[in-house]
Simulated scan of single mutants.
Amino acid sequence: MKIAVCVNRVPDTETRVKIGADGKTIDKTGVNYILNPYDEFAVEEALKTKEKFGGEVIVISLGGSENVEVIRKALAMGADKGILLKDDSQRDTFSIAKALAEVLKEISPDIIFFGKQSIDYDDQAMPSLVAELLGLPSITVVVKLEISEDGTVIAEREIEGGREKVRSKLPIVIGAQRGLNEPRYPSLKGIMAAKSKPVEERPAPQFENKTEVIEMLLPPPKKPGRILGTDASAVPELVRLLREEAKVI
């Protein structure tokens, strides 16, 4: 079975984000970058699928030379080879999806894994958008996945207030959610082996952005808290402020 995993390089969740001098991007000075956490679930599920059915796992990432780092981590976990679609320009979701779809069409995998979203922009659109461009079914926010020998796919996905079970067929695009699995740690042997695994670098297919960042702003600072009282007599004033000032009730 041919299995593809698309991964992204994102700022560490502990990063204190600062806006760059251009006002449209973040200041990358001192920022630590990691493999997108949701993509780790995608890589793990790809490896489990390979262990069950055989085949190969191909890791794909679009970005600058630095993205090789996250590809190498996936290779250290057990993936077989990587493809870096090299491009340092600022791209929107549509342009990235189009480029990924072009390469995936060429590879023609049986199953394509994504993390359900990337923690930098959090738009949660990439798996469904790529699937639409490829004309494939997609199931996102997946927390349980079963694939049968005949290519039947049964997945459980999170929805508001519960879960729903979805049935489909290969080929398919899957968006992995936290809880789908427990990603393995790269072993020392895996880390050493990853250094010799092939990573193909090629120019990313170019497509026009559909959106443009006009300005990037930090959220306003939180207002200091207030103590209205220490007993039940403070409740009427609290309710009034929540209704008239905070406007949450």
Score class of each variant (00 low, 15 high):
Val248Tyr: 07
Leu35Gly: 00
Leu35Gln: 04
Lys98Val: 00
Phe53Thr: 01
Gly30Lys: 08
Leu188Asp: 02
Ile119Trp: 03
Val142Gln: 02
Lys50His: 06
Pro171Leu: 03
Gly63Tyr: 06
Lys105Leu: 04
Gly161Glu: 10
Ile3Glu: 03
Tyr38Asp: 12
Ala155Asn: 04
Ala46Glu: 04
Asp80Phe: 07
Lys116Phe: 00
Thr152Glu: 14
Val143Gly: 08
Asp120Lys: 04
Glu160Phe: 12
Arg91Cys: 02
Gly179Tyr: 08
Pro203Gly: 09
Ile119Ala: 07
Val141Pro: 00
Ile111Lys: 02
Asp120Ala: 10
Ile112Thr: 13
Glu237Cys: 05
Ser187Gln: 07
Val199Ser: 09
Lys195Met: 15
Gly23Tyr: 11
Gly162Cys: 07
Met126Ser: 11
Arg226Val: 14
Lys81Asp: 01
Ile111Ser: 03
Ser233Asp: 12
Ala99Phe: 03
Arg9Leu: 15
Asn67Arg: 05
Lys223Val: 14
Glu212Tyr: 05
Tyr121Asp: 15
Val248Met: 12
Lys18Val: 06
Thr25Asn: 15
Ala97Cys: 15
Gln90Cys: 06
Ala46Trp: 03
Ala21Val: 12
Lys52Ala: 14
Gln90Asn: 13
Ser168Pro: 01
Ala155Lys: 03
Ile159Ala: 01
Asp22Thr: 09
Ile112Trp: 00
Thr152Ala: 08
Val68Ser: 12
Asp88Tyr: 12
Thr230Cys: 01
Gly135Phe: 06
